[in-house]
């Protein structure tokens, strides 16, 4: 069992250029981070490429994880999530540019049914945030998930939920405050 202290130690040694520690960090965390990339990208090839980017980033920025006050595992998952979202956004933009059809771009924003990969990896434990999202209206919970797991902007969320942009903003901000209250309960 790899503990938080182990991961912290491996990150600290990785920051000093210790390649054995870096390899250990990969052994300890790559399956989890690959799961994150698969969950978001739902495509093995893309997820593999992102996982490589994730560990290149970790090698170069291992000294930074304390800066934002995150636990080491949260930092690692956040790096994996952010790079996966960057790629997903690029793929979406490339798809839209290729199609050149605005309707197609909107159709891409339709709430996707989870593919087989996503269904496998989404079967993990329910979290406190899941429980709090359940207290929100379904569409609003969907908007929070859409922002985090699909990297949708306010404008894209407004399109998906067929509401004006300002309405979307107001609704999501209210939902975030409700969530925040629930999380601190």
């Amino acid at each position: 069992m790899v503990t938080r202290a182990d991961i912290e130690d491996m990150l600290a040694r990785t920051a000093m250029g210790d390649r054995a520690a870096f390899a250990g960090l990969y052994r300890a965390t790559s399956a989890k981070l690959f799961g994150v990339a698969l969950r978001i990208l739902n495509d093995r090839g893309e997820a593999e490429e992102v996982l490589q980017e994730v560990f290149v980033r970790i090698w170069h920025k291992a000294d930074r994880y304390r800066a934002n006050g995150l636990s080491p595992m949260t930092w690692l998952i956040t790096v994996a999530r952010n790079l996966s979202i960057d790629r997903l956004r690029r793929l979406r933009a490339a798809g839209a540019a290729q199609g050149g059809d605005p309707d197609a771009a909107v159709a891409q924003l339709a709430d996707p049914a989870p593919g087989p990969e996503a269904q496998i990896v989404a079967a993990g434990e329910r979290t406190r945030l899941d429980a709090c999202l359940d207290e929100l209206d379904g569409a609003r919970a969907g908007a929070v998930r859409g922002a985090y797991l699909e990297g949708l902007s306010y404008a894209e969320l407004a399109v998906r939920h067929e509401v004006p942009l300002n309405t979307m903003r107001t609704w999501l901000r209210r939902s975030l405050l409700k969530l925040r209250e629930c999380l601190s309960r």
Binding site: V36, I120, G124, T127, L129
Partner: peptide, 13 residues
């Protein structure tokens, strides 16, 4: 909390 949303099952790459 949000990391928990992305944190699914482990998949060995």
């Amino acid at each position: 909390h949000l990391a928990g949303l992305a944190d699914g099952d482990k998949v060995t790459p």
